[in-house]
Write a protein that binds this DNA or RNA. Structure first.
Lengths: 212, 212
DNA sequence: TAGATTGTTAATCGATTAACAATC
DNA sequence: TAGATTGTTAATCGATTAACAATC
């Protein structure tokens, strides 16, 4: 196993590997090869092997990869077995959509509760998820160990809310506000979900006739 | 202007340039340089100039870039002035969150109406957006020119719904289902928004101590 | 054993960075 | 004009692909 600075491209492909392996599992397939995975991914077999060997030796020469074992290995690399905990910050439409629809546990994340400033939303709320007052968030974070904040607050309070979370030593922010959160002195990890960037890129590919 | 196969990396940076330029505009700044933009983007001035010169000559030597003109040029490259039209397909929580919260017009997209199979949702519905019966979608698409389908249906009907849209000659699918839509013989453009991929990548960066 | 496929090194390709002439 | 900054070519760096020895 070698582990020196794995490229972002490789990391971003891992969740897709996971999806493809899950497909193979659901088809009852036990063993696969870099060639099969390459076809599923639209990549070369070389790339598959290069990606995987960043993290260890998961295959068997002359045979291929055990589908379930490889799936678990990748899930482990992605920290899905670390028991990460999360809170939802801001229960607007995006927050509610995530609480109702998104299966955090499939990503190995335990969503504990939600916070909002709106008194009307407080109490046992959405999809069995308790909504608490934003006023109590510091106290809560000092007592309960939370790794990830899912940030779904309005634009205008995005930066101040992020600062509050960082003050309370949150490790990572999954950012659904359309703001680039800057992290002045902190080493908080930020993952952005920028809907509008995505739609704009789509607009480019429609205009240009590259097809991609 | 040279236009030979612009890299995906460059395209994905354009919406961020747009955001940074909007910030400069809101600060009343008229003119900027590749150095300033590089600092805002966390990139090198070289990269900024390389990216921009893919699409034309937007700057003035010895001076820099006119902020508003550059903003409009990038918006044009992203097809934001093409008057793209869209429909929302599937009015679950994600669909509703987009209809309520997401400003399509800021991306230059005109969201015309929504479709759902649930009779209870049909009628003038969410945020002034008309919800129509899914049964009428083919007829609608044959009459009204729609470029983009925003696909928010449940997983189990994602592929069949995409097929229906492709049959009806939709140009692009903005895909919020957690399925990799494959496009067998069609040249439809697909842009995926995979929440779980994003959260899993975050999990990796939390586990590893790369910080990034 | 023979055939197959990995893990890994080497070669190629593309993207980023550096350098600088052009020019405002 | 002199100073500044672009547009663009050249150099470097990193990622992808190809090749192949190791080995199951």
């Amino acid at each position: 196993m070698k582990n020196k600075s794995i490229s972002e491209n490789t990391i971003r492909r891992l969740p897709r590997y996971l999806r493809k392996l899950d497909e193979l599992i659901s088809l009852g397939i036990i063993c696969t090869t870099s060639r099969v995975l390459a076809d599923l991914m639209g990549a070369t077999a070389s790339q598959i092997r290069q990606d995987l060997c960043c993290f260890g030796e998961f295959g068997l020469q002359g045979y291929g990869y055990d589908v379930k074992a490889l799936r678990e290995s990748i899930a482990h690399v992605l920290g899905m077995d670390k028991g990460h905990t999360a809170i939802l910050v801001g229960v607007g439409n995006v927050g509610r959509a995530l609480a109702d629809n998104f299966c955090f546990s499939l990503c190995g994340v335990d969503l504990k509760c939600a916070f909002d400033t709106d008194e009307k939303k407080i109490g046992i709320g959405i999809n069995g998820l308790e909504v608490r007052s934003m006023d109590t968030i510091s106290e809560y974070l000092s007592k309960i160990n939370i790794d990830i904040a899912v940030l779904c607050v309005p634009r205008n309070v995005a930066i101040s809310t992020a600062a509050l979370l960082i003050e309370n030593s949150i490790e990572a922010i999954w950012n659904f506000t359309n703001i680039d959160l800057v992290k002045p002195h902190s080493d908080v990890i930020v993952e952005n979900v920028h809907f509008s960037d995505s739609l704009m890129s789509l607009g480019y590919y429609m205009s240009s006739d590259t097809g991609r």
